[in-house]
Nucleic acid binder design. Structure first.
Lengths: 126, 126
DNA sequence: CTGCATAGTTACCCCCAGGTGCCCATGTAC
DNA sequence: GTACATGGGCACCTGGGGGTAACTATGCAG
């Protein structure tokens, strides 16, 4: 299972990890996991995202087949975004990652505190 | 499960996703999933990583309690890195993500090809 | 004629993640 | 003396990810 993880497959993994690890993709994907949404709905739902970054993020997710974009040529424009089946499954795997975070962030915090106590913050000259 | 994903928990998730989504962390973690390794062993195993980035990556992982560093004060210096139990579990969840990649990258490639055919590459003036 | 809402696009700028290369301390071997 | 191996530290620089703001097209309300 982990034998291929940082070799050939790892390259694909890295590629997709970059896709998913950027600043906004997972926010958008999880927001869409509630159901289809329009552009402005997403912009309101994903706190702090700019118009440009929402466009960029959606284009990327659409290109990778994680999100489907449906445009209704009416006026004013009406565009809907929704997860594809692949996107749905992605939500599942990332949720398990979030489960890991949830299960361990106390330990992570403790480890950080211990580390910072040991090594000290960047207070240089002792 | 997904209700908290992009709110309070999401912030932790984002934080850890940043930790794990950087350029080298997962390579190092998966390499260490084979067993404890010394600094130079890691440097050789993780193709392309620089001395500095290996240090930086290991420090980060150590701070978060994902990697344990053991120094034997002999000469020449002998330092061993190994995954903590948390780090082990992390390998598991990320492997399931890699499984998703593996299961769908054909579809992803197809989606990209379709998208690029539809929208065209940055060949501007039609 | 003006403003507003939708769904973007474009130009411009800035910060920092990450790369390169050189320096350090120590003990052994030559 | 000097070269090598370990396990780093530190300074400097660049690219691009991401932020801000203005501009676009269209139809409807006032």
């Amino acid at each position: 299972m982990q034998s291929h993880a940082y070799t050939a497959m790892g390259c694909r993994g890295r590629e997709i990890l970059d896709r998913v690890g950027d600043k906004w993709s997972m926010y958008v994907v999880f927001t869409l996991s509630e159901g289809p949404k329009r552009f402005t709905e997403l912009k309101r739902a994903v706190e702090g995202i700019s118009q440009r970054m929402l466009t960029v993020t959606l284009r990327g997710l659409e290109r990778d087949g994680i999100v489907r974009r449906t445009m209704y040529p009416v006026m004013p424009p009406h565009v809907e975004y929704e997860l594809t089946p692949i996107g749905d499954k992605l939500v599942g795997t990332v949720s398990s990652f979030l489960g890991w975070v949830e299960d361990h962030f106390d330990e992570i915090d403790a480890a950080r505190a211990a580390y910072d106590a040991r090594e000290g913050r960047p207070e240089v000259h002792v």
